[in-house]
Amino acid sequence: MKIAVVGAGTIIFRDEGIGVYAQRYLAENYTFEGDVTLVDGGVLGFQLMTYYTDYDKVIILDTITMKEEAPGALYNIPGEELLGLGSYKQTAHEVEIVEMLEIAALNGNLSDVHIVGIVPEDILSVKVGLSETLQRAFPEFVSEAIAELERSGVAVLPKAEGMSLAEILDAYENPTAQRSVDPTQAD
């Protein structure tokens, strides 16, 4: 099975970037036994359509606006449940994910899509990073993405070394900063 994990969102609008951070966290901290492609879908827009049509399964990591739900609430929603709903969220995305799902469905070649979504606290502030609420919920968000991969038959194996969420957020907040390298650990 060919699987894509797409981290959707816009990192400059605080919690809106959680999908991008989660995709990076998975890439930095895990290996996958299976045909898994991790995609930073933050600004790809319609270029993401390829994944919705050419892969057997697509797992989208993103924020989701659900009325009456507290920030940090998690969802795992099959894509077909979102068809016909139009926009399922209020974000800065130029092209809404549901609209692309609907187009792929109309063409008759929509992959098995799951949205692993989390209710954001702040998607209006122009700030890179996550609210404290979503930082606390991040481990459970990543765990649900891993569980969805495992339900698809993918073995998810932790790497010996990786990056913490704090290091990933820092890498996006300070993109020109270099990670310190221990000279005794040369390749």
Rank of each mutant, 00 (worst) to 15 (best):
I77P: 14
I12H: 12
A22C: 01
V58R: 02
D56R: 00
V43S: 15
E96G: 15
E96R: 14
L110G: 12
L61A: 11
L110D: 08
E16Q: 02
D62C: 10
T63L: 07
E102V: 08
N109L: 04
G42T: 02
Q23E: 14
Y88E: 12
G34Y: 11
T50I: 12
Y55C: 10
G84E: 04
I77T: 12
Q90C: 15
Y21A: 05
Y52I: 02
T50M: 11
L82C: 03
L106E: 12
A104I: 01
A22T: 00
E102A: 05
N109H: 12
F13L: 13
G84N: 03
A22H: 01
F13R: 09
E81Q: 15
F32I: 10
L74H: 07
Y75N: 03
M49C: 01
N107C: 14
N29V: 05
E69K: 13
L85I: 07
Q23S: 14
P78I: 00
A105E: 13
I60H: 08
D40R: 08
M66C: 13
F13P: 15
E16T: 02
Y51W: 09
A22S: 02
I77C: 04
T10F: 14
K57N: 03
A104V: 04
I64G: 03
G45V: 01
V20D: 07
A22G: 00
L48I: 15
T65W: 04
G79W: 08
V95S: 09
F46C: 09
L61N: 01
D62S: 10
V58S: 05
A104S: 06
V36F: 09
M100Y: 10
L48Q: 05
A92V: 10
L74D: 05
N107F: 12
V20K: 02
M49L: 11
I97W: 13
V43M: 15
G72I: 04
V58I: 11
Y25V: 06
L82M: 10
Q47L: 15
L83Q: 08
T53G: 06
P78T: 01
G45A: 14
R14E: 09
T50N: 14
P78E: 00
G41Q: 07
L61K: 02
E99S: 12
K89D: 15
E94T: 14
Y75G: 01
T31C: 06
K57H: 10
D15H: 04
G84C: 06
L110I: 07
Q23H: 05
I103N: 04
D35Q: 13
E69Y: 15
I97Y: 14
T91V: 10
G9T: 07
G86T: 02
I97A: 08
K67A: 11
V39I: 11
S111N: 09
T53M: 12
I103P: 00
I60K: 01
Y25H: 14
G86W: 00
A27H: 03
L74R: 03
D56L: 03
I77Q: 02
K89W: 15
E69V: 12
I77N: 06
Y25Q: 08
G79H: 11
E80L: 05
L44E: 10
E102W: 00
G9L: 08
